[in-house]
């Protein structure tokens, strides 16, 4: 019974994930695309929940579906949010390349999983009580994956500083602004 429920939720969430993903790229109105992206992130969170990763699911909703998408909606609504001209398809080699790249990715994932996991896929994973708990994730961040964790933080810091620099006007630009205002 429990298994059937899990399967039903998994199929629902996976379908929602694919459906909202397609919706993101097919809506002409960017506001709807952003809303579909929120749906996509939320259904991903459900998939994380099914994989016993409650903390990752909550963080996914909090950080991506919450904070990041608020900024997306802010910018889209601020710029008007009107229906832009839909994507005409571009030159035919673009769509051909897109399909080719997507297929290559899919093959790569299947081959990588097949080579790495092999027969292990038939075995059930051992999921302890501590699996996916905040304490366990924190321990991994500060022991096994410390280098990646620190490098990520530096990259984010650089991005923040870059954002400030790009957003700040230089003194020369400010003077030009002042001249523009002074001119009749």
């Amino acid at each position: 019974m429990g298994n059937v429920l899990v399967w039903a939720i998994w199929i629902g969430a996976a379908a929602a994930c694919l459906g909202s993903g397609i919706a993101v790229v097919s809506f002409a109105n960017p506001f709807f695309s952003a809303l579909a992206l929120i749906g996509n992130l939320a259904s991903l969170a459900v998939l994380f929940l099914l994989a016993s990763a409650e903390f990752v699911a909550a963080a996914q909703v909090l950080v991506y579906a919450g904070a990041v998408m608020v900024m997306f909606l802010f910018v889209i609504a601020y710029l008007g949010g009107r229906a832009d001209t839909p994507f005409e398809g571009g030159p035919s080699w673009v769509s051909f390349g897109a399909v080719l790249a997507a297929t290559a990715l899919l093959v790569e994932i299947v081959v990588a999983i097949g080579l790495k996991a092999g027969d292990l896929l038939a075995d059930e994973a051992e999921v302890g009580a501590a699996f996916g708990s905040p304490a366990e994730i924190g321990r991994f961040f500060l022991t096994d994956h410390l280098l990646a964790f620190e490098i990520t933080s530096i990259v984010l810091l650089i991005a923040a500083v870059g954002g400030v620099i790009l957003g700040t006007k230089t003194r020369a630009e400010e003077q030009l602004d002042r001249l523009d205002k002074a001119a009749p």
Binding site: F55, V61, G66, V70, L73, A77
Partner: peptide, 25 residues
């Protein structure tokens, strides 16, 4: 009672703000 209830409150609350933003748009 969920072990990450504090984060859950913030997560659901952040979804709730979309109600206000989307309403305005």
């Amino acid at each position: 009672d969920v072990p990450i209830s504090l984060i859950l409150i913030f997560a659901i609350g952040s979804i709730g703000t979309f109600g206000f933003i989307v309403a305005g748009w």
